[in-house]
Each structure stands twice: as structure tokens, then as C-alpha cells.
Design a protein around this nucleic acid. Structure first.
Lengths: 190, 190
DNA sequence: TGACTTTTGAGACATTGTATATCATTTCTC
DNA sequence: GAGAAATGATATACAATGTCTCAAAAGTCA
């Protein structure tokens, strides 16, 4: 009973969604550090004490938001992981559709350990797919790390400049500037 | 009198240096968000109220530390700004000599507006030095931004992996992986 | 060295934010 | 409609911030 209702009760879902939306909105307005649990609960029209019935503190709510955002990304790119340009284009299209959670992700980079773990995981996955060139000057771990992290940097630039180029063009740019050079310099041809 | 002694009184310098060192040490131990003004003043062997005679809050002390660190960097690279490999090598040598303030800089990226401003400034300076290739797929602002930001990413990787390659090699790697491709793709030959 | 100035340490205080507990009320599930 | 669960409102303990005061310590400069 109670185990099922914890998942299905409309009030719970509604409360959590309201808190999530409030956190995202307030973080973009004032910055994550500046907002309080009281701010969040007021914006969400939720009692202050009710917040703590769902999340142990502000950081736990953030984790919840980031986890959803990152899960979306991983599901999106998994099917096309071997086509860099297509992967990057899909990522930018997804950012275009829901920019706010991504903005939150970017401006809370150092708060949560989630992003570093996703980076390490993605780098590892990439190293298992490609064959390092033993004669290369560039260690494969550096090339893999560079490919992963630089994409996020360009997403950040793109969002801060109000998405001046369409996702397909960003896919071409990232591929030419980052993916192709890294693959040619550090790995053997497919 | 008071104006001169404000700058020369040994007690002031000693207090500020102790607070600076305490902030760096505690940030690396527990993370910037987790430390309190009381933590800092206790570690520095300074009275709690004395902290506020020097800095309005924790963030102001951090700004002071970061400003010094960034000023060091800018002074270091200014003379050799047109030689990418040498510039990068010097930067990595400097990080090797004083890694702790750089670690603090990296893990407080989103706290202070200083780093974004330095990035914007450096990108602008780079754009004024190089000639964009009008036929390039890649906008020069993206190439410039990429060159600046990616170096910091590799510094972060290098520090987190305990500096596994010497600065000179990191200079070669960064030049081959980032600087050369960006220059060839987005700018005209010097 | 010695007079004078400035900084410091210690403690009190008001304020703000966190996190928990209680209880009547509302809302959902079955 | 009955019972169970979540919510709102309120009270409370606690931790951290930032300000203030005053006596003691340490510096400056003649």
C-alpha cells in the first residue's frame, strides 16, 4: 500500500514537480548559492516543512534535477555514439528544446559530483571504442577527456550567446574543431 | 600616517597572509562551500571578528586570492603571447610550482565572476591578434573561446591526475590538439 | 627607548537560515 | 464514503553571519 502510493499519489508528484521548477527558475534568476529553502518553497507554493519531507536539503533537490537531465543526455546519445557529428547535433537539439535545466547544470558544476562522474564514465566508454595510436604524441586519455569536456564548454558558449547557430551547424563545428583532430592525432583510423 | 601604516603595518600583512593560506588549505580539504568564516579564522589563529576587519565576507577573501593568481598568469604569458607552445608550457610550469591556488581557482569557477571576465578578455585579445578566415566553417569567436577554455580543462585534468607529464610535453600536446587545429581551421596563416 | 596610534582578541548581540517535531486540515486511494 | 497519507501552519533548537565594544598587545616613528 504505502510503497505503491509513494509512487502514485498525485500530491507527491505535484509537490516534487513544483519544487523542481522553482529550483530551476530561482537558480537562473539569482544563482544557486543565493537561494534558500524558504525561497524555493514559497515560489513553489509549498509549505516550508514540506520541502524536507521530499528532500533532505537544497543539494538533494539539485541532485535530483541534475540526475534527470544527465539521464536524458545519456539516453539520447547512446544509439548514435559512433557518429560524432550526429551525436553532437542531437545534443545541441536537446539543449535547444530544454535549455533551462542545462543552464542549471552548467552553473552548478562544482556543487555536485555527478558531472565529473559522467565525464569519467564517458571518457572510459570512448577509450573502449577507439584504438589508441601507439606512435602518437598525445595520450589517449587526454584526447578522450578533451572530446567530452570541450563539447560542454561549447554548449555553455552557445547558451550564453543566445544560440546564434542552429544545432546542425554546431555539430559540424564541434566535429571539425574537436572530434576530428582528436581522433586523427591520438587514435588509429576506424 | 594612517594611510601609510595601513599598507605597511606588519600585523595587517601577517593577518591577511594567514587568512589567505587558511582559505586555500581548507578549500582543498573540505571544499569551498563547506567552510565557514569561523573555520578560516580558527585555522589562521585569528580572532573571528578580526576577519571582518579585512574582508567583508568569505567571498571577498576568495576574490582576493583569485585576483592574485590570475594576475600572476597574465603577467607570465603576456611576453610570449604569440608563441602558443611556449605560452602553454610556461603556464604549466607555473601551475607545477604553485598548484594549490590553481586548484582553488578551478573548484570555485562558478563562485566568482573573475574567471569568466578573464576568459572574455583573453578571447578578445586573441581575436585582435589573428586574422579570421572568411571562408571557414568555424566562427572566429568560437575558435578563440575554445583555445582559451580548453587549456584550463587540460590543466584541471593534469592536476587531478597528479601531473603525469612534464610541462614541456603538455605544451606540445595542447599545441597539437587544440591550438594548431583551431588556428588552421578558423584563421589565415600568419 | 618611550609616547602614541593601530590592530587585535574576546565576548555579547541581533539576524538569518537550517532542520525537526507536532497537530489539525485537506486530499488522495481504494 | 471510510481510512490512509500528505500538507500547512506553527514552534523550537541550532548554526552561522555580521556588528559592536573595550581592554590588551603590538606596531610606528620621533
Amino acid at each position: 500500500m504505502s510503497e505503491i502510493s509513494t509512487l502514485t499519489d498525485k500530491r507527491i508528484n505535484q509537490t516534487r514537480r513544483a519544487l523542481t521548477n522553482a529550483l530551476i527558475a530561482l537558480t537562473l534568476e539569482k544563482g544557486y548559492d543565493a537561494i534558500t529553502v524558504r525561497d524555493i518553497s514559497e515560489r513553489a507554493n509549498i509549505g516550508y516543512a514540506t520541502f524536507f519531507r521530499h528532500f533532505s536539503d537544497k543539494d538533494a533537490l539539485l541532485e535530483d534535477v541534475l540526475e534527470g537531465t544527465l539521464t536524458d543526455f545519456l539516453g539520447l546519445i547512446r544509439p548514435v555514439i559512433n557518429d560524432p557529428e550526429r551525436t553532437v547535433t542531437l545534443v545541441f537539439e536537446h539543449v535547444e528544446q530544454t535549455p533551462d535545466p542545462v543552464r542549471v547544470l552548467l552553473c552548478t558544476r562544482n556543487v555536485s559530483p555527478l558531472l565529473p562522474r559522467i565525464f569519467a564514465f564517458s571518457s572510459q566508454a570512448m577509450l573502449e571504442t577507439l584504438t589508441p595510436n601507439p606512435k602518437s604524441l598525445i595520450p589517449p586519455e587526454i584526447a578522450a577527456h578533451h572530446m567530452i569536456v570541450s563539447i560542454l564548454e561549447l554548449i555553455e558558449w552557445w547558451l550564453e550567446h543566445e544560440m546564434p547557430y542552429p544545432p546542425a551547424q554546431m555539430g559540424k563545428i564541434v566535429n571539425a574543431l574537436i572530434m576530428q583532430p582528436a581522433r586523427e592525432l591520438a587514435f588509429l583510423e576506424k
